[in-house]
């Protein structure tokens, strides 16, 4: 009873709260980093150096009036943000923060496929949110967003297949263990796959430079134009939770998860003094920083450019990478 029910429930509670708190601080981090990139200070008013902004934003969103448009489909309008957030949180069930069973909720033998399939459910929140608002710009934005998500999902899944080919396992713990045994992070064995997954991840989370669904200048705000208050906050949480998911997946598959840098060099063993989960969280935040850095640096793609990049560049390269990996696997 204790091992099968109580402890997993405790872990789930801790993890969900940790993710949500991480999201609020991630928003602050994004504003600060972009501000520094543009020679500004960013939020400074709430708390020392604006740190409490991370609390002020959620409080504002909770207290704000929650408006449902008269012509909206009431049930679907309420359901859409939930359908958007839940998959983003469910994914963390299989993300291992360390080698010990204490650090993950479940290590299932189809872990990577589980992540791919659950994130593919998230698209419903976006489509339905845009449709239920009964307003033309959100509908356009949601159709764009879902077309983008589906297109890039193909490329990412195709790329991950070549990674699975290298490891021979779908379990995330198994993938990290394989990197420890081979003494090298897969990012160095599969550099093409790393780049593909990262670009695909940017597109799947609707981040800059692929943030067309939220292109304010064209669409007045995106699929959540009609949302306010807590329901808007749920969409917001989902977007940032998805960013964390993508970073975690990239770290687990290509950057050795909880392993210290250079796991094959013995004299760096003192790095193991830091607990495994700190390495993991640190690497995840490094990638989140890269996400933000890219947003501060690159201009937005045009929609047709986005689609032709996905279908005419990423997918063929992913297939090519798969073929090359297969040939290497057979020859060596």
């Amino acid at each position: 009873m204790l091992d099968t029910v109580v402890i997993p429930l405790l872990k789930i509670a801790v993890l969900v709260n940790a993710v949500l708190v991480a999201v609020t601080f991630l928003v602050l981090m994004e504003r600060k980093v972009i501000a520094w990139a543009q020679s500004r200070l960013g939020p400074m008013r709430v708390g020392p150096y604006g740190i409490l902004q991370a609390l002020a934003d959620p409080i504002k969103l909770i207290l704000k009036e929650d408006i449902t448009p008269v012509k909206a489909d009431r049930y679907v309008f309420t359901l859409a943000p939930i359908m958007s957030l839940v998959p983003a949180l469910v994914v963390f069930a299989v993300v291992p923060f360390g080698p010990d069973p204490l650090y993950y909720i479940g290590d299932i033998n189809v872990g990577l496929l589980f992540i791919i399939s659950v994130t593919s459910i998230g698209v419903y929140g976006i489509i339905l949110g845009g449709w239920a608002s009964n307003s033309k710009y959100p509908l356009l934005a949601s159709l764009r967003a879902s077309a983008q998500l589906i297109s890039y999902e193909i490329a990412v899944t195709m790329t991950l297949v070549s990674v699975i080919l290298t490891t021979g396992t779908l379990s995330l713990v198994g993938i990290v263990e394989a990197q420890r045994e081979s003494g090298i992070w897969f990012g160095f064995i599969q550099p093409v796959a790393l780049v593909l997954v990262f670009i695909g991840g940017l597109a799947e989370t609707n981040r800059a430079p692929f943030d067309l669904p939220e292109a304010e200048t064209e669409l007045t705000g995106g699929f959540h134009t009609e949302y306010s208050g807590m329901r808007f906050a749920l969409f917001f949480l989902a977007e940032y939770a998805n960013m964390i998911v993508i970073s975690a997946v990239v770290v687990l598959i290509f950057f050795g998860g909880w392993l210290r840098p250079f796991p094959n060099i013995a004299w760096l063993g003192f790095l193991d003094l830091l607990p495994a989960w700190i390495w993991f969280v640190g690497k995840v935040f490094l990638f989140l920083y890269v996400f933000i850095w890219i947003r501060a640096t690159l201009p937005r793609y045009r929609y047709d450019q986005l689609m032709s990049l996905g279908w005419k560049v990423l997918i063929p390269v992913a297939i090519g990478n798969l073929v090359v990996t297969g040939v290497f696997k057979v020859v060596f």
Partner: peptide, 25 residues
Amino acid sequence: AEFVAVIQVLVYAGGIVVLYLFVVM
């Protein structure tokens, strides 16, 4: 049947039904 379950979610729920939703809209 874990693999079939995941494929069910990935292909049916994440793929085919999205197609239906597109057509309905």
